[in-house]
Write a protein that binds this DNA or RNA. Structure first.
Lengths: 207, 207, 207, 207
DNA sequence: AATGAATGAGCGTTCATTCAT
DNA sequence: TATGAATGAACGCTCATTCAT
C-alpha cells in the first residue's frame, strides 16, 4: 500500500498519488527534524511538497497521523538498514565486528541519510503519549535486535560476563543518538566516528 | 520534591519581586521539561506561578526570554553542581575518581533534582537558532570543564594516550544525557547507574 | 423505509442518468432532514448515493441547487398527495370532511412517508433568501389550495362567517407542521392525531 | 429594533465585562435567528459586537457554548414574560382569560421583542444532542406551566372534559411558534393575532 | 458518466502579546 | 505590581468546487 517502506522514497514506478503522499512525508520528516513537530505547520509542509495545505487532508487524516508515519518510518529505516548490513556480513563474522557494523550503519543512517531517522530521535520525546505508544513496539523490536547482537558477543566471550547488557545497550545507543546534536561531517566520516565509538565501547578509555 | 530552588534561588530572602520572577522560572522549567517549549503556554506557566499571564511581562520580555533563562540556568545548575562536587574531593583524588564523581553528579542533577537541567537537555534541540546561540558559551564552558577533567586523567596516565578526548567526552555525555529518555528510579539509583557507566567508559565491555 | 421515491421518482424506469440524479436527491433529502442543510456535506450525500462527490456536479450545478430541488419536491410531494386524496373523495363529500382528509394526508406525508416533505419544513427557515424566494410560488399555490378548501367549507356554512380564513389556515398548518418536532409514532397514529387536530380546529376546546 | 436587552441584559450598573458578554450574546442571538447556527460565523458575531473574533474566547469556551446560552435565554425569556403577565392578572381571572394572556405574551415576546426567543425556536432542531439535552429541562418546565394553565381551565369547566390537554397544548403552541415564519406587523398587532388564535382555539371554526 | 486529485476560501480556535487601569 | 480585557496572526482543519482524465 504505502510504498515508502521500501526504505523511503520509491522510484518513479509508483502512481502519482503515492508519490504525492511520499512527498508530503518527506517534507514533513525534514521539517520535523529541523524544527520539531509543534513548530512545523501544515502550510510549511505543503509548501515544501509544492501543494496547498488543504490537499494534505486528501492523504492524511491529521497532522498527528503524519507524525505517526514519520516516526514509524524513522525507526524502520534505521532498523532495516542495520539489520541488512549485519546480515550481509560473512557468517562467521565475530560478534564485535557485527556490533561495529551495526554502529556504523546506525550512525550513517541517522547522520547522513535520513530525515525520518533524525526526526524520530528528535521528536519522540515531545510527542503525545498516544503517538509514543503506537511507536513503542517498533522501538522495542529494535532494542531487542541490539540485545541479541550483544548477547551473541557475550556468549562468544567478546563481552565481559558481568556486563549488564541492557545498560550497555542504552549506554551505546544513547551515545550514538546524541551525535545528531554535534556531528559535523567536516570533522570526519561517520565510519571513522563509528570506529572510535566502538573502540571506546569495547576497550574503554583506560590505557 | 522539586528542589530546583535549592540551587537557583537567590541565597538571601530577596525582595518579593525577585521571588516572583523565580517562581515563574521554576514553573516554566517544570512545564518545559514535561511538555516541551512549544506545547507550554504562558497561561500554564502563569497558572503554576499563581499569577496571571499578563503579569509575566512585568518580569520577562517574551516567552522566548523565559526559555533563554531556563536554558541558561539548566547548564549552570549542572555545571555548578558538578564543579562543586569535584572541588569538594580531597586534593589528591585520582583523575578517574574525579570523573566518576562528575558523572554521578551530572546524572543525579539531571535525573533527580532539577527541572532546569532536564528542560535544558530536552528542549535545546527544538529551540530557535538564536536561543541556541545565546546558550553556546555556557555549553562550551561546561564542555571545557569536562575536557580539563579528562585531560588531567590522561596526563596522569589514567586514560589511554591515543584516546581522542573530544570524542570521548561527547560519547560519555551523550550517553549520560540520553538517560532522561529511559531512566527509571525503580530500577536502581543514579549512583549505581553512574558506577555502571563509568566502568563501561573506563574499562570497556571486553572481558 | 424511505418511500420518497414512491411519489417523486419518474413513473417509467427512466434512463440510468435520471435514476442517479434521483438517488442523489433522495440522499440529500434524507440528510437535510436529519442534519439540516449546512451540516450536510456533499461527501455525505455522495456516500449515501454510492457515488463520489465530484460526480454530483455532473447532475447539479451546486449544493444550493440540490437544496432548491429538494425544497421544491418537498412542497410538491405534500401538495400532490393532499390534492389527490381530496380529489379521490366522493363528489358530495362535505367541506369539513375534505379538510379532515387534507389534514390527515398532510400529516401522514410529512411524518410518515417523506424525507422531502420533512426536509422542506425543517430547512426552509434557515435557507438563503434566494432559495426561499425560488420556492415561493409553490408555497403560495399550496396555500391557495388550502384557502379554497376553507372557502368551500365556509360557503357551505361549515365554517363561521366571521372566521378569517387566512389566519385560520396559517393557524392550522402551523400546528400541523410543528408536529415534526414532537410526533412520536409510539403515541398514536397520524390518523388519530389528524382527527384530534380537526376536532380541535372545528369545534374548539370549549365544552 | 433589537429590544432583547429589555429583558435579558442587566442595566448599566454592571461591569464592562458583563456588558461585553451580553453584547456577544445579543449579536449571536440575532444572527442565529436570521441565519441559523451553522451559517453564523464567530467573525460575524464579533463584527456585530464590535470586537474581534478571538476576544469571544475570553467570554465563552466555544461557539457551542454561546448557542447553549442563547437557547437557554430563549426559553427563559418567554417563560418569564408569560408567567409574569399571567401572575399580574387579578386573582379571580378566568382560566380562559389567563390562557389568552399567555398566548398574547408568548406571541408578543417571540415576534416583537426577542431574538433569543426566535433563535431558540428556530435552532433547537439543528443543534447537537448535548445542547438539546441541556435545554430539555427548561422546555419541559415551560410545557408544564402551560399544562397547568390548561388544567385549571379544564377543572373550571372552560375546556371540554374530553379534550386531551397535551395535544391541545402542542396544537396551540405549534400554531403560535409558526407565526415566526409569516407574521407581518403591517397586517395587524400581535395582540389582535392573539385574540384571533384564542377564539379559534376555544370556540373552533364552526359557526 | 464518473472520478481522483487538488484547491482556496474560510472556519473555529489558540496564544503570545499589549496596555489602560 | 499586577491584571482584566482585548487583539491579531496564525493554526489545524473542512468543504464546495474544479478539472483533467
Amino acid at each position: 500500500m504505502n510504498a515508502s517502506t521500501d526504505i523511503t522514497a520509491s522510484p518513479s514506478q509508483s502512481r502519482k498519488s503515492d508519490r504525492t503522499r511520499q512527498t508530503i512525508l518527506d517534507a514533513a520528516a525534514k521539517l520535523f527534524r529541523e524544527q520539531g513537530y509543534r513548530a512545523t505547520t501544515l502550510r510549511q509542509i505543503a509548501g515544501r511538497a509544492k501543494i496547498k495545505a488543504g490537499s494534505i487532508y486528501y492523504y492524511f487524516d491529521s497532522k498527528d497521523q503524519i507524525l505517526d508515519e514519520v516516526l514509524e518510518l524513522g525507526i524502520r529505516v534505521i532498523h532495516e538498514a542495520v539489520e541488512k548490513a549485519v546480515a550481509d556480513l560473512p557468517e562467521k563474522t565475530s560478534g564485535r565486528m557485527r556490533i561495529e557494523t551495526a554502529v556504523a550503519t546506525h550512525l550513517h543512517t541517522v547522520l547522513q541519510y535520513n530525515d525520518y531517522a533524525s526526526a524520530n530521535i528528535q521528536n519522540i520525546r515531545h510527542v503525545s503519549l498516544a503517538a509514543r505508544n503506537r511507536n513503542k513496539d517498533l522501538r522495542r523490536a529494535y532494542a531487542e535486535y541490539w540485545h541479541d547482537l550483544f548477547d551473541v558477543a557475550k556468549r562468544a566471550g567478546e563481552i565481559g560476563k558481568n556486563v549488564d547488557l541492557s545498560i550497555a545497550r542504552l549506554f551505546l545507543l544513547g551515545a550514538l543518538n546524541s551525535t545528531i546534536d554535534w556531528y559535523d561531517p567536516k570533522q570526519g566520516s561517520t565510519k571513522r566516528l563509528a570506529e572510535n565509538f566502538c573502540n571506546m565501547f569495547f576497550e574503554g578509555s583506560e590505557p
